[in-house]
Design a protein around this nucleic acid. Structure first.
Length: 320
DNA sequence: CGGGTTTGACCGGCGC
DNA sequence: GCGCCGGTCAAACCCG
């Protein structure tokens, strides 16, 4: 959390791309990737990419490099906090073309448990909120002390389970961007040092534990910071999905040799935040243009190798 | 009437 | 221990 905020505030983000957005063609996604320098691409691959890309929705970036855009990544590495900022954002960039970008802040949070439970109870009772859990435990009529111990034990376990988070910065007037999924707002808080509140949303689909926070950058009010937590375990709701992307479903990708990425790139479509989140494997951090050139679907080890090859040459190009 | 939003209250974590 | 703050709950409210 603190790292995310810190990095964002440091303005170590950005670049420009074209992109197609379902809401506003002038919405601009400001690519930003942040995470520990030693982050494991496989973590991203397995935790973010695999689940999503293997079973749900259309995958791939919705980014189309601007023909006039030559600047892609201006990486910087924050040696002090140990974070790598793969992109820098040129806040002076003012473009009226259909502009977009790709990228994400990968909060490489420690996960000591391999399989976080995303039970319905955990979802709606607020698995990271001891309040309701304690209430329910107590209300169950069991021995209070014992239940409290159980709660503590549960909390200790829960504490270790941290879902990976991915943040996106979007230059848009719209606070809550349509992304194909259905969200229920469950809270809003004032953000310290910011006149703009932060909204909390939960995916309304049962058994889906995905949450997202939406807040407007106080430094650049035109930028909305959306942070996704966890992964959807279901397809995009049919009605909206159809409206947004009448293309093949994930199963189509699985049953054919179609690469979600290549297919996506070859098929102009609406873009959503979740599209980023559904990007297969570590391509969350990938340069979409590079993907277009390579036209390959990353797979596990080869993905990682590709990433390692890509990062030095593409992402970590030193700014002159 | 069902589903989504608003908003004050509450809780846990953390720094001092 | 205390206060601050982020995150969540849940009742009340709104809306189609």
């Amino acid at each position: 959390m603190s790292n995310e905020t810190k990095d964002l505030n440091n303005n170590h983000y950005t670049s420009s791309y074209n992109h197609y957005n379902s809401i506003d063609s002038q919405n601009m996604f400001l690519p930003y990737v942040s995470g520990p320098c030693t982050y494991d691409a496989n973590m991203i691959s397995s935790q973010i990419g695999s689940d999503l890309s293997s079973s749900h929705g259309a995958n791939g970036f919705g980014f189309y490099p601007s023909p006039s855009s030559t600047e892609f990544f201006n990486p910087s590495i924050d040696q002090e906090n140990g974070f790598c900022n793969a992109y820098n954002y040129n806040t002076s960039l003012k473009s009226h073309e259909v502009v977009g970008g790709g990228g994400a802040i990968i909060e490489n949070e420690t996960r000591l448990s391999a399989s976080p439970s995303s039970s319905e109870a955990g979802r709606y009772l607020g698995k990271d909120s001891g309040k309701s859990l304690m209430k329910r435990e107590a209300d169950d009529g069991g021995d209070e002390q014992r239940s409290q111990k159980v709660v503590k034990a549960k909390k200790n376990q829960e504490k270790k389970i941290r879902e990976p988070r991915v943040s996106f910065m979007t230059k848009t007037e719209v606070d809550h961007l349509e992304d194909g999924y259905r969200w229920r707002k469950y809270g809003q808080k004032a953000v310290k040092n910011s006149p703009y509140p932060r909204s909390y949303y939960r995916c309304t689909t049962q058994k889906c534990n995905v949450k997202k926070r939406v807040e407007r950058s106080y430094q650049d009010p035109t930028v909305v910071i959306t942070t996704y937590e966890s992964q959807h375990n279901h397809p995009i709701p049919t009605t909206r999905r159809t409206a947004m992307f009448p293309g093949p479903a994930a199963s189509d990708y699985k049953s054919s040799s179609l690469s979600p990425v290549s297919n996506f790139i070859n098929t102009p479509r609406s873009f959503s935040h979740d599209d980023l989140f559904r990007v297969p494997h570590s391509s969350v951090n990938a340069n979409p243009y590079y993907q277009q050139q390579q036209n390959h679907e990353f797979q596990h080890d080869s993905d990682y190798k590709l990433l390692k090859e890509m990062f030095p040459s593409v992402f970590f190009k030193q700014e002159p």
